[in-house]
Simulated assay, not measured.
Amino acid sequence: MKRRTLLASAAMTAGLALGMATAGFAMDKTKVGFVYVGPVGDGGWTYEHNKGRLAVEEHFGDAVETVFVESVPEGPDAERVMTQMALEGADLIFTTSFGYMDQTINVAKKFPNVKFEHATGYKQADNVSVYSARFYEGRAIQGHIAGNMTESNVIGYIASFPIPEVIRGINSAYIHAKKVNPDVEFKIIWAYTWFDPAKEADAAKALIEQGADVILQHTDSTAPLAAAAEAGNVIGFGQASDMAEYKDGPRVSSIIDDWAPYYIARTQAVIDGSWESVSTWDGIGAGMVGIGDITDKVPASVAAEAMELKAKLASGEYHAFTGPLNKQDGSVWLKEGETASDYGDNGLAGMNFYVEGITAEIPN
């Protein structure tokens, strides 16, 4: 064979190998799906989950493709969306709301080779992990600030759904507000939504009319902060995201959910084949819960105390639920110095009661 023919043959072989490698790389690209309960522009919960998705894209580059569907109602629509993602080749699907729990389990059974990650739920399977953040640690800090800042001694709380996650937050905020202000009172309105700006605004206005000069929220839009700004003498906090556009108005700090490190780690686990079903519940110490900048509206001494509380929560020196604490009916929950367990009959994961001092009732 002539040298020129040999060179041409070698070039063709190399080209074929490169083409096959390129095709193989494309075929091996990991596809990651995200199902969102709100719009990516909600400024809160979904906004932060989508920031995590974008962090996955930035971290992995062309090795990963991400897809998402926003504003998916909790129910049959969620199951349809998850099924479609799996059918379209998703290797990993993050379902980012508590109400997607049963749908996630149902779809996971049909697609055993797809990995699922469900946010804030508790049902696992061989191909379903669960993950959540200890939001109640951030609520403790908010409660401390709110208890110090209120002049009317009335703090309003906009709650979403009566599930343990939300009840924990109410209790934690109340406990720490009460520690610094024994006269504080909580008024609670259940919005029965995660994201509905109109409902959230109406709830905030109703609480303000009832005398609240501090508004806390476990809903996802900036509407309560807008209502506080309109009232003029009311403060509030960013929820799930910094909501910093209100930092020159009513927003005095925030709880920030940082999902990016978890999303990157779990995607990497799928890529390298080490993924397994786990239950993750991280807080301030692990960086999954952040505290936004405390503005100058908060006295320097109160801000310093809040940051000290954050440091103790992060290190484990202090637990947000430390006795003595009683249940709403006066029965002992935690004895002096005792801290709450995560699980068990009186554990935080299944919390379905208010602590003593809260006069509202938990809806069925």
Rank of each mutant, 00 (worst) to 15 (best):
W45A: 05
P112K: 00
A303H: 01
I155P: 03
E74P: 07
N181E: 12
A201Y: 09
M307W: 14
A191V: 08
V154I: 06
K310A: 01
N181H: 13
V35M: 05
I158M: 02
T193W: 05
S277Q: 11
G344C: 01
A360S: 14
V32M: 04
I362T: 06
A119N: 10
V214N: 00
A8Q: 15
V289W: 03
Y262K: 15
V69E: 14
S241W: 03
L313C: 08
V37Q: 06
L6K: 15
F94I: 00
K327E: 10
I105M: 08
G41N: 10
Y263D: 09
V166R: 00
S9M: 14
V298C: 09
A55E: 14
D126P: 03
I163L: 02
I256M: 11
M149Q: 06
Y174T: 02
P162C: 07
A360M: 12
W333V: 03
M27K: 14
G169V: 07
P250I: 05
A306V: 02
E336Y: 09
G33Y: 00
K327P: 14
T96K: 05
T46V: 12
W194E: 07
N352G: 09
F237S: 05
Y192L: 07
G43R: 03
V332S: 12
I294L: 01
K115Y: 01
A26I: 13
Q103W: 04
E338Y: 03
Y263A: 12
N233F: 08
E70C: 09
R80E: 09
T83I: 07
G287A: 08
A320H: 02
Y343M: 13
G290Q: 13
I189H: 04
V35D: 05
E57L: 08
V107R: 08
V72Q: 04
E361A: 09
Q84T: 07
I170C: 00
A133R: 10
I358P: 02
V355Y: 11
T339M: 13
G143S: 01
L309R: 00
A159P: 00
M351P: 02
F25D: 15
G287I: 03
P324V: 07
G138W: 01
T30N: 04
T95Y: 02
K178N: 06
M82E: 00
E117P: 11
N171A: 02
Q268T: 12
G75C: 04
L18W: 08
K31Y: 04
N50W: 12
Q124H: 07
M27F: 11
Q239A: 14
E70R: 06
V130I: 04
K51G: 14
P76N: 14
A14H: 12
F98A: 02
V298A: 07
D293Q: 08
K109H: 08
G89S: 05
A191C: 12
H49L: 10
D42S: 07
I284S: 04
P261R: 12
F195P: 05
R266P: 15
P299S: 09
A11N: 13
V154P: 01
I235D: 02
A125G: 11
D62R: 14
G44C: 00
I255C: 09
F321K: 00
A314M: 10
D62G: 15
S254A: 11
A244D: 03
W45G: 00
I264Q: 13
N127M: 05
A90S: 10
G61R: 05
G15H: 12
N364C: 14
E361P: 13
A133G: 15
M20P: 13
G344P: 00
E117A: 11
N233K: 03
Q268I: 14
S253I: 07
A269N: 14
I294V: 06
S97Q: 02
G38M: 03
R53S: 09
